[in-house]
Design a protein around this nucleic acid. Structure first.
Lengths: 350, 350
DNA sequence: CTGAAAGCGCTAACAT
DNA sequence: ATGTTAGCGCTTTCAG
């Protein structure tokens, strides 16, 4: 309350290595050794030191350690605002998985915001320069994404979730095998007896959209089924609803539909219900991303293995951080999982 | 490539205060002064130093600064996984707003995960002890929430988003005035000509649910309208759908419905459509939280002012950090905003 | 196997 | 108004 250091009066005493050493009758250095090179210290003294650490509730000071070893154990991640029209947020769930993976690796996630790709790169570089983070994770990297090259040029260690169409050899990435997911969805519907399986996807400008559409096309071809039930629209519920509507007006309407996203699938679900069709019996729908909404509406959906993705990303990033300059990078393609729910679980007979 | 310091070869030279001082022909201390007490240094030398800073692209080392001033400029935030059945994520949007507010205040958000309230408190305390964060933000604090008291006991500086029913004088909080939001929704519907306005809310165990329900009750009473159209259910789409269904089976069904969440509102929307009612014309629906899904379905909704909430939280937290021990804390109640969309924008005549 | 010395980059206090 | 000194807590040499 009085005196010049009033503002620190409520702070805990802050236990240091020296405090522990004092209690254990050893030097601070030995305490540090117990923590980092337990084999270098005699079992007896180690026991004593460990007891002292425990008794005092010692917690190493991160700033001091960071300063000394020039590594913050922090991973930067740009948080983007959810698109207003999207259903459920993959971003949100990924972030949680990443936080979990970081913790398992003894690190933490540092959030930052940025309005566009350029400022994301600038901010990331700045965070690295100031020692706030050791590296960053790039989310939703797409075909022509400028960020990998820019971060490479800025010498910011990073791992990408998603990948560009070219230059993937220059950096480490983890991606989900969309093709496999869509293929699984089509195979599943074929196994249920469907033959006219439509596809509602995104315009060509999205590389992910292209990959998913192509997979549908190949799968249909492989089964000897028609490949003309293919529409590309914006990723909104309305677009999904309208598209199914027009499909159903055809003389030979599809009996099942695979969509590039749950947002589109929710729209399709809406149309089916509005037309008095029972989803799962009269028409099958399979979405993509396994969002909370898919769960809520009992929609089958191809889910991304976010936990595995996060773990892989942390692994590659740590690799990246400890690696020598001229090393080679890695790409990892993870398989998604089809979650079958009511919207497609019954056998279909015309 | 060779030698013992190979692993640092790709790192930038890392400009320090001393480097800047050397270039500007002053001591490192003067450079520091230019940065922190510009008035204490002569305009001429300041210019020179600033030029040097700019030329070298100097960025202060956070770890060193943190060590020296024992403050990390980091705010801890526990990221919780989205509930599978909830629609859109307030959490996600709040996090973005908080990141933005933190940046504006020259700070960053550090993410952490925890399985329950207890481990959240333990982790927060640990992050504080290790100097990783200066304080934390508590999300979704409810009536009997044990976290404020626990953090207080652990002497972890924090600000709560939401508040407990008792003991709010002991800590700083920011909350949204639910009552005002619901009242606004009811008034709006009354102004549109509705008289039978139903309420679908949450069970009593949620304090937020109680507040919102009470506000509906009072508002209806004030307008001299019936207060029996009141149901409490779990926060799922299905519950919302079923509840509206049963309301509409009444001999005197409601013509409008206010819900405690968008999740419930989406369910209601679904039921209305399924029954061939045009939402906005045959029945009005107003949700809560103004989620992306409300936007997508053109649902009116009471939106929380997340940006203002975040700014207020940062303000109070900074206050908390710089304050003397025995100070008083603050509570701030912010008004939500009703966003009127198609689901309730028309006048209603029976 | 343990201790002593040095310094990471910064800033508060004092000295000039 | 600027420079010098010292030390935050830790770890990497190097001696003992």
């Amino acid at each position: 309350m009085s005196g010049s250091r009033a503002e620190r009066e409520d702070a805990q005493p802050a236990v240091t290595l020296a405090d522990v050493g004092r209690l254990a009758k050893v030097s601070a250095q030995t305490v540090s050794n117990v923590l980092h090179r337990p084999d270098k210290v005699q079992p007896r003294t180690r026991k004593r030191v460990e007891a002292a650490i425990h008794q005092l509730g010692y917690q190493p000071n991160r700033a001091a350690r960071a300063l000394r070893v020039s590594a913050s154990q922090m991973i930067g991640f740009r948080i983007v605002p959810t698109a207003p029209q999207a259903v459920g947020s993959l971003h949100d769930r990924f972030l949680h998985a990443l936080g979990e993976a970081a913790r398992a690796a003894g690190r933490h996630v540092l959030l930052f915001t940025a309005d566009d790709a350029d400022s994301e790169v600038v901010t990331a570089s700045q965070l690295l320069r100031t020692g706030a983070v050791d590296g960053v994770v790039l989310y939703d990297v797409v075909a022509e994404d400028p960020r990998p090259a820019a971060l490479l040029a800025a010498r910011v260690p990073f791992v990408a979730f998603g990948r560009t169409t070219t230059g993937t050899a220059g950096y480490s990435w983890v991606d989900v095998d969309d093709e496999a997911g869509v293929t699984e969805a089509v195979d599943h519907l074929v196994a249920r007896g469907h033959r006219r399986i439509a596809y509602i996807g995104w315009p060509e400008r999205f590389s992910v959209g292209v990959r998913r559409a192509r997979a549908w096309h190949y799968a249909m071809q492989r089964h000897g089924l028609p490949t003309d039930l293919d529409r590309r629209v914006d990723d909104t519920m309305d677009a999904g609803a309208d598209t199914l509507d027009s499909f159903l007006d055809d003389p030979e309407p599809p009996t099942a539909v695979v969509t590039a996203s749950d947002t589109l699938a929710v729209g399709a679900h809406h149309t089916a219900s509005a037309r008095g069709l029972e989803v799962g019996r009269d028409i099958a729908i399979v979405g993509f991303d396994d969002t909370p909404t898919a769960y809520a509406l009992n929609l089958s959906s191809v889910g991304q293995p976010l936990t595995e993705v996060s773990v892989a990303i942390m692994e590659l990033l740590i690799d990246e951080l400890s690696a020598s300059p001229g090393r080679t990078h890695q790409g990892r393609l993870l398989a998604p999982r089809l979650v079958v729910r009511k919207s497609s679980d019954r056998s279909f007979r015309r």
